[in-house]
Design a protein around this nucleic acid. Sequence first.
DNA 1: CTTGAAAATTTGTATGATGAATTTTCTTCT
DNA 2: AGAAGAAAATTCATCATACAAATTTTCAAG
Lengths: 224, 224
Amino acid sequence: MKNDKRYHVTDAVFEKLKSAIISGEWKPGEKLPSENRLCEMYGVSRISLRTALNRLAVLGLVESKQGGGTYVCEFSGAEHLQSILPVIALEKPDRINMFEFRKIIETESTALAAIRADFLLVQKMRAANQAMKSSSDIHVISKADLEFHYLIAQATHNPLIIRVFEVLSDTYLALLTDNVCKMGATGAADHDKIIAAIETRDSEGAKALMKQHLDDTIKRAVME
Amino acid sequence: MKNDKRYHVTDAVFEKLKSAIISGEWKPGEKLPSENRLCEMYGVSRISLRTALNRLAVLGLVESKQGGGTYVCEFSGAEHLQSILPVIALEKPDRINMFEFRKIIETESTALAAIRADFLLVQKMRAANQAMKSSSDIHVISKADLEFHYLIAQATHNPLIIRVFEVLSDTYLALLTDNVCKMGATGAADHDKIIAAIETRDSEGAKALMKQHLDDTIKRAVME
DNA sequence: CTTGAAAATTTGTATGATGAATTTTCTTCT
DNA sequence: AGAAGAAAATTCATCATACAAATTTTCAAG
């Protein structure tokens, strides 16, 4: 009852264009044929083609300049359209879902981080945690808090995990700031223990500590 | 040098529509005015309005049905994940990282599914698994395989988990098809056990079974 | 009140035309 | 020849109009 969405011309063109980019037919930085040309190539109207291109643009795959042409974007990390809706304040049930998701990703990430983290990253974790402890500015604290968790994600060296974290970071930050307002930088002590566990490559221990840390955070965040 | 992007009509309309949704002027589930009416309201052409609407649709904020109208989607934070699509597309994540990520999400999802799955979903899981066993068509088998795992995700009732699964499903399907080619529908037996565990609300058991199942799958997939 | 077909509404697609920004071409001057 | 600048061609942005396809609404028949 839900999947009765028609396949439209624009969907087909979108898929074809996407495939062409993914397959490397058009490489990053390269210029696509003009819209009129693409219309001929795919046998569709300019309307359909343009909506497909527009979708690709929203996804950050291509970029069009009036008069200049359309180019495949070089994938440059997180910067593109990052925060889509950081504005939307999440309802309480949504927060719980977000926390649940975060707990899953982060506990397992911590286990991986303990195995794979290099010295530089551990050092950065320490620095972030130090910054967290030595400030009294709410925003600085929550930023440092987020940074610590981000470093954990980076330490997994799994681009999917890192990217998912980046995408959700705005919402995470909102949640963290909220927590910091309620109870200050109390998480820093937990972080210290986690860092220590990571440093000794104690994967299971680090994971358990992170799980406990997040459970505590959630508990406090929810009971408001 | 980079930010010399012109502000186009379509950008302005997009922002206005987005604001209207975020501010709650149009609430989730609500029907937007027709395109023609919106054109009048904002004083733009239908082309511009439609590109703006299209963007919102890509972001998961609205949904249009031909002949039916355009509706505001219920959002739950999962929309943020929309932007990981380009990464998946461009960076063609290697199997190892994909499997690792999948293992994390799915093992924990199974634990949650055992707690929250309702009868209907369990029934669907059985059906999918039955379809998997009773077919010899590779594509049918792998489709059913994917469906089973998708149902697990759905059983968590966590929109973020569900969304992540949906975004990755294309890649998953490719992996699954590949596996089925190599070793047929051998996973169905595992699935049966997992379903049984879910049915008895044995969360830890189901999780362990899924973990084992994925480990086996990965092992076989890698040794090719 | 129910059924079902016709009418109205609404989104999807196509075509053609014009404006705006950029790129290319070509003339002109040193 | 080389540089500068104007003209032309290219290309994306926007508009108006029309029709097709799908859905919703209306309304008459039973």
